[in-house]
Design a protein around this nucleic acid. Sequence first.
DNA 1: GTTAGTTTATACCAATCGGTCAATACCCTC
DNA 2: GAGGGTATTGACCGATTGGTATAAACTAAC
Lengths: 198, 198
Amino acid sequence: MPWEKNFDLDEATDKAISVFWKKGYEATSMSDLIDGMGINKGSLYNAFGSKKALFDRALLRYDQKNRLRALAQLSQMPDGREAIVTLFDGLVAETQEDTENRGCMLVNTALELPLHGEDIREMVTSALGEFEEFFRQSIIKGQSLGTIPKALDPSLTAKSLLTSVIGMRVLARGTFDVDGIRAIRDAAVVMITNPEVS
Amino acid sequence: MPWEKNFDLDEATDKAISVFWKKGYEATSMSDLIDGMGINKGSLYNAFGSKKALFDRALLRYDQKNRLRALAQLSQMPDGREAIVTLFDGLVAETQEDTENRGCMLVNTALELPLHGEDIREMVTSALGEFEEFFRQSIIKGQSLGTIPKALDPSLTAKSLLTSVIGMRVLARGTFDVDGIRAIRDAAVVMITNPEVS
DNA sequence: GTTAGTTTATACCAATCGGTCAATACCCTC
DNA sequence: GAGGGTATTGACCGATTGGTATAAACTAAC
């Protein structure tokens, strides 16, 4: 029997993620990927098949490592309001560390959608759909605990929060500074906060 | 003396807009532009200089014809709340007609920002800045008329509305259907609406 | 009708695109 | 250590990239 593949597929995929993340699909060339991944052209095609296949794999892994993991943790919080605020705080922190203005690979891809195939559209749609559902569940949980105003429509507010996250991520790509991003977070927090009884 | 340039620069630019709008900067090739603009390669380079220069011109013109013109009209409305609602209604209608999922060229570019030069960043930043300022002014106007709750922080809410618009535009590129887009509009309207006194 | 300038069409450029392939280097099993 | 099979490697592929150059066809003012 021969010998097993000895370069780490996941590790290589991670490096591919970081390349695609920064430049998007179209603007990334195979040379960029080879340089960034530190493997050879032949190996790349042998291991992944094509640029498109590599992108698919990269996006899937990105989504699992970032969105899925984060939402899984936050969903366990008993207070939905706290979960949402924590999420936004995390996004602000992420933006602060994102000195290269990479934003979010999922959102970047969502805007590139018309260039990709149906498979990518489905991935993005379901990922953002789950994101929205997290918000909805959290709002319901918060409302039952009394930390989120009962007057809010969970579905509507969930869509609105999802939209905020996406806009935030777009603006983080070079338009807003950290203060602007933080303001968006604040606005989102206000939206799910009980009006002060005066 | 010779004869003056007889093919319409603005008209050609409009066609270039529609090509860039759909595919973005990187994914658009000169062949795409030549086909879409209906002029010859030589003429194109003679008239515009380079792909980048053409894109700059196209984006500038797009911004003037769409955002600037719309905001100018809406700013004249006496009631800020009505102006904002009208804006969102317009976006919903635009999305409905946008069967090709082109979204908004300005937002598309905002997400592509790291690929462009400083000039484009400045254009996008100032355009979105003016957008935000329109919201702020409208909110203040609405508050003084009593149509928008005085409890809202104008700057914060303006940023939030801008974020909604951007997220809306991203989701319109293929993730949300028209109902989803309309929900975002509704959420934005709720945000600037006086709570019902019960 | 000459003339200056514009547009068109086409051929061309080096560079790079995504992708392939045969040779080599390699490691594991026997 | 020989054999079998995989990974790596760099050369190589045709096609296309953004951009230039050319000469012919055209148009309008003189």
